[in-house]
């Protein structure tokens, strides 16, 4: 249905951080993508674009390992991702469009749990990070009284608390205001500069230098 020749290899290092080759996925007898091949090297930002329903979210969840109904190979630093799952997961930060913020807990409590699962972080650091994502004054409020955009900011705070190399962000811009969009673009650029890699779906035109595109399905003319 669609053959995608993704971004030409631009990585300086020989082995890309994450690569997928010949990925195929169908859902409800509809082929979402086939023959999909891409590489993502350190320092790269790859934006996945495509119409609604073209399989962007499915692709991201396949790459993270949440979804295993696909064919093809996914490699992490040249090795099949399944052989090195624990290290892969320790290096991965996934932010889905269900953002993983519990509504009855406070931002602080949410982030504490997030960090405790991967790398424990001291409370003072979390408070500082909440301040820098614009949530000062809301540290101890239940998340259900926060707006959707503020809840999204709680999940953005995870980006500042993690040491993960690979960020996988599914529609992270949807509920953010202009300041929030700017902040997130900054975070993504900064992460790429430090040698991290970012995989992001969005319909926005991102103001990020060295941005690679991966198009799913046929774009409307």
């Amino acid at each position: 249905m669609n053959d995608i020749a993704a971004n030409p290899a631009t990585s300086e290092s020989a082995v890309p951080m994450l690569s997928g080759s010949d990925l195929y996925c169908e859902r409800d007898d509809r082929v979402l993508f086939q023959g999909l091949t891409f590489t993502l090297a350190e320092g790269q930002v790859l934006q996945v674009v495509g119409n609604n329903g073209s399989g962007k979210t499915t692709l991201l969840s396949i790459l993270c390992g949440l979804n295993d109904s696909f064919e093809g190979k996914i490699n992490w630093f040249g090795k099949p991702v399944n052989e090195n799952r624990e290290l892969f997961l320790a290096s991965l930060l996934y932010l889905g469009h269900r953002i993983g913020v519990n509504r009855v807990l406070t931002p602080l409590e949410n982030l504490r749990w997030n960090c405790a699962l991967t790398q424990p972080v001291h409370k003072s650091k979390i408070l500082k990070v909440l301040h820098s994502v614009g949530l000062s004054g809301f540290e101890y409020s239940q998340c259900c009284i926060l707006s959707a955009g503020q809840q999204q900011r709680v999940s953005l705070a995870r980006l500042l608390l993690t040491r993960a190399q690979l960020w996988v962000l599914d529609e992270p811009f949807t509920t953010l205001d202009t300041d929030g969009v700017e902040l997130l673009e900054q975070l993504i650029s900064q992460h790429a500069k430090q040698g991290g890699a970012v995989l992001v779906t969005s319909h926005h035109r991102l103001k990020i230098s060295n941005l690679q595109m991966l198009t799913l399905g046929k774009q409307r003319a």
Binding site: L89, H97, R98, L117
Partner: peptide, 22 residues
């Protein structure tokens, strides 16, 4: 249920810990 709906469950599945203990 609430973890499934708010996405925390995905985080739990994707943390580098054995899911058994979680």
């Amino acid at each position: 249920r609430s973890d499934f709906e708010d996405g925390s469950l995905a985080l739990l599945l994707l943390c580098p810990q054995p899911l058994y203990f979680m």
